[in-house]
């Protein structure tokens, strides 16, 4: 009987583990490629901006959505398109919090591939430009 009773528990844990397997890879990719600058909780420090509670703001405009891919940390990372898309999605789910104002359509490898071929040069200017446009659109609403 004991064995039988365990069955649903085991099947449940199998499903839970399958899910955590994927997130294990994403977390590892984030740790190895991004965490050194962006810190474990996405808070950043110094010249590394906080993604925690803020990164979702960029998703309010197409230019902002593209910015998250074209920022050099993302675009020039050693990750494949697929894994970069997964890391960016993880960042949004994990760090955006209340800054995400509308339903998020996850990035895909196909979306990320052409964008990252054009890493930004004048990052700070572009970032300001994107944020001002979003703030302006908000003010007009």
């Amino acid at each position: 009987m004991v064995r039988l009773l365990l069955l649903p528990v085991l099947l449940w844990s199998a499903a839970a583990l399958a899910a955590s397997d994927d997130s294990g890879r994403v977390v590892f990719d984030y740790q190895m490629n991004c965490q050194g600058c962006h810190t474990p909780d996405g808070a950043g420090a110094g010249s590394v901006p906080a993604m925690q509670g803020h990164v979702g703001v960029f998703l309010q405009s197409q230019a902002g959505r593209e910015y998250l891919v074209r920022v050099p940390g993302s675009a020039t990372s050693a990750l494949s398109d697929e894994r970069l898309a997964a890391v960016l999605n993880w960042i949004v789910y994990e760090f955006a919090g209340d800054s995400l104002q509308s339903p998020f359509t996850p990035y895909t490898a196909a979306e990320v591939a052409p964008l990252r071929k054009h890493p930004l040069n004048e990052v700070d200017d572009y970032r300001q430009h994107v944020l001002r446009a979003i703030a302006g659109a908000d003010a007009r609403e």
Binding site: R3, L4, L6, L7, L10, L11, S13, A14, L17, A18
Partner: peptide
């Protein structure tokens, strides 16, 4: 059948856990 299935299939993820 359930016992056999229950004993063999989930062993893998449990070992991994």
């Amino acid at each position: 059948a359930m016992l056999v299935g229950g004993a063999s299939i989930p062993l893998l993820p449990v070992a991994r856990a």
